[in-house]
């Protein structure tokens, strides 16, 4: 299970302020803390409030790379910000994200191939998030076909079936799980899967409980990665236990510690 640390995001006030003031300390502190927590990639999102998205993304990439060797997940709807960020990445990155609209596919898949990056593909188009598994799966199929068309290795395509908050779209939960399972049947080798985990508990009580419960359920359906709170110890322990119970790693007494340390 690849945990992509969610915390370096301009939606959080400390990061927003750090970006505005170009103060690397909070950003680097979160990079370190998430890595210690067990994150093996870091999501970088400049947030909605920043005017110069390109400059802010470049700055984030640079200051994070000063303190961390983790894979960077460049999270933006601004394609120029992503491309400028990719140019600075020392290691293969993850692009977050494209949807299944043809105009985005045609720009982002070639970009991923050009920079040797992985790509997160959302199972939606400009009309929004589908209600059921079948429609999600149809978009997933379009993303798989695009990987084939543009020459992106299937292992570098991360399909996100889009989970909604439990208090808003409760009916989406089982549909997402069904989609995850079926995505794995679309190709061989199968594409990978990812969710923005914390979204499942947005504005809910018992957020951490909801997050880790959904993580365990989604792992059993074939989830490979999650953009999540890497500093939530119970969540990370759940991921570690899930890997053991799914026989993805050989059990040892220190399995939780090993999950964080590898």
């Amino acid at each position: 299970m690849l945990i992509i640390g969610e915390r370096i995001n301009g939606m959080f006030n400390d990061i927003k302020r750090a970006i505005q003031e170009r103060d690397p300390a909070p950003v680097q502190e979160w990079a370190r803390r998430q890595e210690q927590g067990g994150a093996r990639a870091l999501d970088l999102n400049v947030g909605p409030a920043v005017a110069d998205k390109v400059g802010a993304m470049k700055w984030l990439v640079e200051v994070v790379q000063e303190v961390s060797d983790l894979t960077l997940c460049l999270d933006s709807t601004n394609i120029e910000a992503i491309e400028e960020g990719l140019k600075l990445c020392k290691r293969p990155a993850i692009i977050n994200s494209t949807n299944a609209d043809r105009e985005k596919i045609e720009r982002l898949f070639p970009l991923a191939v050009e920079y040797g990056a992985a790509l997160i593909g959302l199972t939606m188009n400009k009309n929004g998030v589908p209600k059921d598994a079948d429609t999600r799966l149809a978009f997933a199929m379009e993303l798989v076909a695009a990987a084939d068309e543009f020459g992106l290795p299937m292992e570098d395509l991360y399909i996100d079936p889009l989970i909604l908050p439990a208090n808003v779209g409760q009916d989406h939960g089982p549909e997402v799980l069904k989609t995850l399972y079926q995505i794995k049947l679309l190709a061989n080798p199968a594409p990978r899967t990812v969710v923005g985990l914390s979204n499942v508990s947005q504005n809910c009580q018992e957020r951490r409980l909801l997050n880790r419960t959904f993580l365990a359920m989604a792992m059993a359906c074939g989830l490979d990665a999650a953009i999540a709170d890497a500093c939530d110890e119970e969540l990370m322990a759940t991921a570690a236990a899930g890997e053991v119970l799914l026989n993805q790693t050989v059990y040892c007494d220190s399995f939780v510690k090993m999950f964080k340390a590898r």
């Binding site: 050989v250 059990y251 040892c252 007494d253 220190s254 510690k257 090993m258």
Partner: peptide, 10 residues
């Protein structure tokens, strides 16, 4: 025992 094998290496 592979589990002990791994644990001992750790």
């Amino acid at each position: 025992d592979i589990n002990i094998c791994k644990q001992l290496n750790i």
